[in-house]
């Protein structure tokens, strides 16, 4: 929304403003996401590129459609639909068929954002709504993983990418074995859960571990998050609380039984925890605003993530943990209202 500047502006303080607008914050988040997206394209090749482009375009077009149909606030120029699209694509497996990606993108904006009234009014993180939907609808495709650094990744697509709409994607196990020797197709977390195999930490840092498109580069995610936090476009307390709570919970379990439970570093680096903690839990519209509330919110997400991973049926729990945290955010805000300056404690009768 570009409002015309009146010649004389009469208003109360603050009179000196930092030029921070929604557009500016969102553009910076897009910039911070681009290195992660580029890294995933470098790892997974053409298929990851096609997926990112398709999902982001769907989100933008859906946003445009709802802006035309309804009378909601926000527009394409605020970049928020682009962020949703990028984030959503980065949480999907690189071999995800494009038509399912399009479904996920449409659901993310339509159900996760437009129905609530557009930007700033959404209760849940739109990208995670889209992912939760395809997780429930296409459970097999969303847990089929392709190898990173396949030799022909820039000259050929993963066979499942161009599956006909509404059709089941082909099995890529044979193709994956052919593409990369010794590829097992299981994520580090699945290998831990079902085989008690601990993937070494350097695999996560180099991005060699099997995962969703944008989850593999913990260092890159941290660097991009640090940029946003340094420019104060993101609340640094949230990722610190999420990762800290997850690490502490994992540590407690490891002390209890070191042979069964992995070390805190594994928990922090594996799966989508890093991406979720830095880019999704910090969504301004769906996280609490009070300083104390932010810590509680982050801690809940961290603990719930580890609980789902250890005791749930799924191997990954970040998505549901953040959605649960989103749902609790208004309640947390209500109970952590700071005391107004000069207010006295109520006298107990």
């Amino acid at each position: 929304m570009v409002a015309k500047q009146p010649h004389l502006e009469l208003r109360t303080s603050p009179h000196v403003k930092r030029g921070v607008t929604v557009e500016r914050i969102m553009l910076n988040v897009v910039l911070a996401l681009l290195p992660i997206a580029l890294f995933s394209v470098w790892q997974y090749g053409l298929s990851a590129l096609a997926l990112i482009v398709a999902v982001t375009l769907t989100c933008i077009l859906t946003e445009r459609m709802f802006n035309r149909l309804g009378s909601q606030a926000g527009s394409l120029s605020d970049w928020s639909a682009t962020i949703t699209g990028l984030l959503l694509a980065l949480t999907l497996p690189p071999s995800f068929p494009l038509w399912m990606g399009v479904v996920a993108g449409f659901i993310a904006i339509a159900l996760g954002k437009a129905l609530f009234g557009g930007i700033g009014s959404n209760v849940f993180n739109p990208a995670l709504i889209g992912r939760a939907f395809v997780q429930a609808a296409f459970a097999v495709s969303i847990s089929t993983w392709a190898p990173a650094y396949a030799p022909h990744r820039f000259s050929e697509f993963i066979p499942t990418t161009f599956t006909m709409p509404f059709m089941t994607p082909a099995d890529i196990a044979d193709w994956a074995k052919h593409a990369l020797d010794g590829f097992t197709g299981a994520t580090p977390m699945a290998r831990w859960k079902f085989e008690t195999y601990f993937t070494p930490a350097q695999d996560f840092l180099s991005g060699a571990a099997t995962a969703s498109a944008g989850e593999t580069s913990a260092i890159l995610i941290l660097l991009c998050g640090a940029y946003l936090a340094a420019r104060k476009f993101m609340d640094w307390r949230i990722p610190v609380a999420v990762l800290g709570a997850a690490a502490l919970t994992a540590l407690a379990f490891q002390i209890y039984n070191p042979e069964r439970y992995p070390d805190p570093l594994f928990v922090m680096l594996s799966g989508g925890l890093m991406l979720g903690a830095v880019f999704m839990a910090t969504d301004m519209a769906t996280s609490p605003v009070t300083p104390r509330g932010v810590w509680i919110y982050g801690a809940i997400i961290g603990v719930v993530t580890v609980m789902i991973r250890y005791f749930g049926g799924l191997t990954e729990g970040v998505m549901y943990a953040i959605l649960l945290g989103n749902a609790l955010a208004p309640l947390i805000d209500q109970y952590t209202q700071p005391k107004v300056f000069g207010e006295r404690a109520k006298v107990k009768k």
């Binding site: 296409f138 495709s141 599956t163 006909m164 509404f166 089941t168």
Partner: peptide
């Protein structure tokens, strides 16, 4: 309706 290769949307 769509032949044997149809991908069911389990959530539905």
């Amino acid at each position: 309706l769509f032949g044997p290769d149809f991908q069911p949307w389990v959530v539905m």
